[in-house]
Write a protein that binds this DNA or RNA. Structure first.
Lengths: 323, 323
DNA sequence: GGCTAGCATCGAATCGATTCGATCGAAACG
DNA sequence: CGTTTCGATCGAATCGATTCGATGCTAGCC
């Protein structure tokens, strides 16, 4: 009938239903009881006017919350290439989704200061600095840091990097290995912890080099550096994906795993393209994600900071054997 | 000095700087010129009061935009297990991020009606129905559908499924193959197009079965059904990840690729854990992501619907050979 | 019958900015 | 010198809801 008339608001609905704005609001939100008849009338008026529910922007302003939680993951392209990151993300999303919160991806080059975030999850992915951090602190946005360095005021979720790494090292030591090398991730807090665990058993373990958690990256790293520093009977990696790359590259060069070289991973994710089961340190990825999400919910609800450290478990597979 | 006083607002800053609220606003937004001296004064007052910039929730209400774009991907855990999805996501995020927009993950079980979204990308991932769709339409949220069925009012981004699939089929036909089977994705619009392309060349090609784009899923599918329906000299898959699973499973059973069986994929992503290059249909994943993001920007800016169909290209690798 | 409870509803304040139109001075111009 | 123009600033309206406190009305109780 009419031209491009503006979208109806709750006030229009209230007027059309013959009730006050506040009653109409209550009919939608259910925050206080409204008689069934009134609710009917309001909803009918809404349908007739083509009103599709309260404007979330307005509600957000009034309530001071946006319902959106950011998750900083460094570079998107590399962060999710590892199934371990996905497993955790999945659990985070599940818990937050059930609470009605959305999850917003933040890659660290972007300018996110203008977005309204109720909290931010900082999943370090190999970086210790992050441009937006100070800004978030200034804006009083609750922060939950996963496997990062502890920061004052932020909740801290972690796993037993050092103990897990040491348990794996002891396993190798018991097998008779003495010349052990590591493929590491780029410098970061968890990386240092893991190296410390390795050195608890092998004080002068060598570092072959650092690379991302990526099959191809590990392959080319090993290809470049395997012969560099004398004989090595075992290589420990910082992810199963890296370990898979090392196994594949070793085989390509005629080195048998585990007969000639033992290889170990970290995480405990499935590697279906590898025909042997990796020896690895299994971390509870889903638990980590859930703990992270629950920490977020707690912080949003105003609870204090409660850190979590989750246990890991050595799983001996077929990729390690006697020296 | 004082107790838990409420966070300062722009009005406080304006008062402290001795300017009007509107001038203070302009000093931050720069939407109209403000003298340098005034801006200095406002910013100084802000610093002193610990004001961390205009509240995004308030700005959002006023401007009617949230700066957040949703992306629906079905199940998170399965959607991003394929590097093709990640490559596209990466490009989307890059373009949207540059425009100051955030990307919010929507898994299809969640209730996202309460979130303020400026637009939604619908990356089908094998599903044709999606609970929130009607709601989004009712709320007039611009929709961009990637590889989905066309829906009135939504922008449509696609690739040449049928032509690409047919080109691959012709390649196999030229190699002498006559008994060809397909591993498919679950029923969906692109899946049907691709089957049509296959049947343009092999009218009675068989479907071994459908599974997700996942190495392990393809392996077990092939393990169950390879012998089911007589001899097959070539298997076409709907993703390189699936194809990798088929290659690995074939080898496990002593079937050589490509000597005994030709295997083809789709997408053109890297499969570093496979020691042979797959024959595949390469799609421009980054272009697809960019086109999607640009469509979103256009729709948010109020532009009309402009669909995009991107070309694909056959890449002959080492996984296909003479029948 | 008078008094108290309790439920449904309403009016008004509020969330924190952006932005339109008006005003005021000073510079530019003839 | 009078007038026009333009830039800087201000006041007030606005975005669209939620929510607090007050009011009216009905029912229950002694």
């Amino acid at each position: 009938m009419s031209g491009p008339t503006r979208a109806p608001t709750l006030a229009d609905v209230a007027a059309s239903a013959g009730v006050s704005l506040s009653t109409a609001s209550l009919a939608f939100s259910g925050n206080k009881p409204v008689s069934a008849a009134t609710r009917e009338r309001v909803l009918a008026a809404a349908t007739e006017l083509g009103y599709s529910g309260p404007n979330p922007l307005a509600r957000n302003l009034r309530q001071g919350r946006s319902g959106v939680v950011g998750i900083a993951v460094g570079q998107l392209s590399t962060a999710f290439r590892d199934p371990a990151a996905l497993a955790m993300l999945d659990a985070v999303s599940e818990v937050l989704g059930a609470a009605g919160l959305g999850l917003l991806l933040m890659s660290d080059d972007d300018e996110h200061a203008r977005l309204p975030l109720d909290a931010v999850i900082y999943d370090i992915c190999g970086r210790e600095t992050w441009a937006a951090y100070d800004d978030l602190v200034a804006r009083d946005v609750p922060l939950v840091v996963v496997e990062g360095p502890e920061w004052p005021g932020s909740t801290y979720i972690d796993i037993e990097h050092r103990a897990g790494s040491a348990a794996l090292a002891e396993h190798l030591h018991a097998l008779g290995h003495r010349d052990v090398a590591a493929v590491t991730l780029v410098a970061s807090h968890p990386q240092r912890e893991r190296e410390a665990g390795l050195r608890d058993v092998f004080p002068d373990a060598r570092v072959l080099g650092a690379c991302e958690s990526d099959v191809a990256a590990a392959q080319s790293l090993v290809a470049r550096h395997l012969g560099d520093r004398g004989p090595v009977s075992a290589i420990v990696c910082q992810s199963d994906v890296q370990a898979a790359g090392v196994v594949l590259e070793a085989r390509r060069r005629g080195i048998r795993v585990p007969e000639d070289l033992s290889v170990a991973g970290f995480d405990g994710v499935a590697t279906p393209w590898l025909d042997l089961e990796l020896t690895t340190v299994v971390q509870p990825l889903a638990d980590k994600g859930r703990a992270t999400a629950e920490a977020v919910l707690g912080r949003i609800a105003g609870a204090g900071v409660t850190d979590v450290v989750l246990p890991v478990e050595l799983r001996v597979g077929e990729s390690t054997g006697p020296a």
